[in-house]
């Protein structure tokens, strides 16, 4: 592994490390972006959607 720190190779080693770091960050961001879009899609769907039966909610409120 010592050859990676050789002055003539070190600049390419540094570049490879920087590229790997960027690719990892970028992949993570893309994944996060996809999840955020899914969340947004669900948020926009909600007005017409009932997550729990109305009767259950009313029963719960009346018991409080």
């Amino acid at each position: 592994m010592d050859f990676l720190a050789n002055p003539s190779v070190a600049i390419y080693t540094a570049m490879a490390v920087a590229l790997v770091v960027w690719v990892a960050i970028f992949a993570y961001l893309l994944r996060l972006d996809a999840q955020a879009r899914e969340l947004k899609r669900r948020m926009e769907q909600v007005p017409g959607e009932q997550t729990a039966p109305r009767a259950t909610l009313e029963a719960q409120r009346s018991s409080e």
Partner: peptide, 11 residues
């Protein structure tokens, strides 16, 4: 684009 910037920065 950013990968290109990294390559340009070093090479």
């Amino acid at each position: 684009w950013m990968a290109g910037v990294i390559v340009a920065m070093f090479v």
